[in-house]
């Protein structure tokens, strides 16, 4: 087991997540793409701790922060989806284009 293998998996997760985030029309699916990206970050953090700096807790803290970022992203994403949907029955990114500044 090497650092490179685990990091490659993480890179693949980030790539797939990016594809999903950019290509999906539904807001909820966009969020799932973002979650996959953060999933890759999680894995990279774990690999960095184990293979590079096991004596320091910093990489572990990165994973904790990544988990919290996911939770926050979920909550705010769902809340915004509900708010937009209530206001105008829209759940697609393309239909909310006029929100761009």
């Amino acid at each position: 087991m090497t650092l490179q293998i685990v990091l490659t998996v993480a890179a693949a997760l980030i790539g797939v997540g990016l594809f999903g985030t950019l290509s999906q029309q539904s807001i909820v699916m966009v969020m799932m793409g973002l979650e996959l990206v953060v999933n890759g970050v999680l894995l990279a953090g774990g690999a960095a701790w184990y293979f590079l700096t096991p004596s320091a807790p910093d990489a572990q803290m990165l994973i904790v922060v990544a988990l919290v970022v996911m939770a926050v992203e979920m909550v705010m994403g769902f809340a915004a989806t509900i708010a937009i949907y209530r206001a105008r029955q829209v759940d697609m990114v393309d239909m909310a284009k006029d929100l761009r500044g």
Partner: peptide, 28 residues
Amino acid sequence: SAVAGASVFTVLTVGIWTIDWPARQGTQ
């Protein structure tokens, strides 16, 4: 989107396998 995802993966992978990673610091 597929091009963007694939190119990010490629860039990261090339980086991962060409970088000279530092040695393990400290013990578990």
